[in-house]
């Protein structure tokens, strides 16, 4: 098997996680696309430096992290850039998620889906409409009779509850292993 074939398998296994990581780091969708592609290409060019005893996904995210920092430097003065500490915090969380059971990220995130199901109805409803049904925010607001601001706050609170729930689950897994 040629190196690029193996590389393609590796990036397919890790692409979802990298994309999720970049989406949490950068809000601009175009920038996410650019950083995703650039991370993969840099990984390919530096593949000789990769320590095969280490997780490939973490190495890939390390590359993405450095590229994101460069992106923030280039766009200084625009938006809210994440600093190294914030990126490190995110990496630690993604590394925990990567350690969950399941072959794909979708499978690993069953814990998060359980958290969604456990949300009180007023929170679960907008989350499901947003992420399961992919409805646009105005439509959700109209359906739930919430103003844009109220919906935004509702979703924010829901996501923070989900963060608490997921962290508890990750901690429980960590204690078991």
């Amino acid at each position: 098997m040629k190196p690029e074939q193996v590389f393609e398998i590796l990036i397919r296994e890790n692409a979802d996680m990298l994309l999720a990581y970049l989406r949490s780091v950068v809000r601009d969708k175009d920038a996410v696309d650019d950083l995703f592609q650039e991370s993969m290409l840099v990984a390919w060019r530096k593949i000789e430096q990769y320590d095969r005893d280490r997780p490939f996904g973490a190495w890939l995210r390390g590359i993405a992290r450095n590229l994101a920092l460069g992106h923030f430097r280039e766009r200084a003065g625009h938006g809210q850039p994440l600093d190294s500490a914030a990126l490190e915090w995110l990496e630690s969380r993604f590394a925990q998620v990567q350690g969950l059971g399941g072959d794909t990220l979708g499978e690993k995130l069953s814990a998060l889906r359980d958290c969604v199901e456990a949300l009180p109805e007023p929170y679960r409803q907008p989350v499901r409409m947003r992420y399961t049904d992919s409805l646009p925010l105005p439509e959700i607001g109209k359906s739930l009779q919430l103003t844009a601001e109220a919906l935004k706050k509702r979703l924010t609170r829901a996501k923070l509850r989900l963060a608490d729930c997921l962290e508890r689950k990750l901690a429980a897994v960590g204690e078991l292993t």
């Binding site: 999720a20 290409l41 989350v127 963060a163």
Partner: peptide, 30 residues
């Protein structure tokens, strides 16, 4: 805000939002 972004990104994957583009992205990389 960081936790919110983190959960937002995971939710988008957990519910398969826009996953169709991942294969196309990889195709472009290859």
């Amino acid at each position: 805000r960081l936790r919110e972004s983190y959960i937002d990104a995971l939710l988008s994957v957990a519910y398969d939002e826009d996953q169709g583009s991942v294969a196309e992205r990889i195709e472009r990389v290859m």
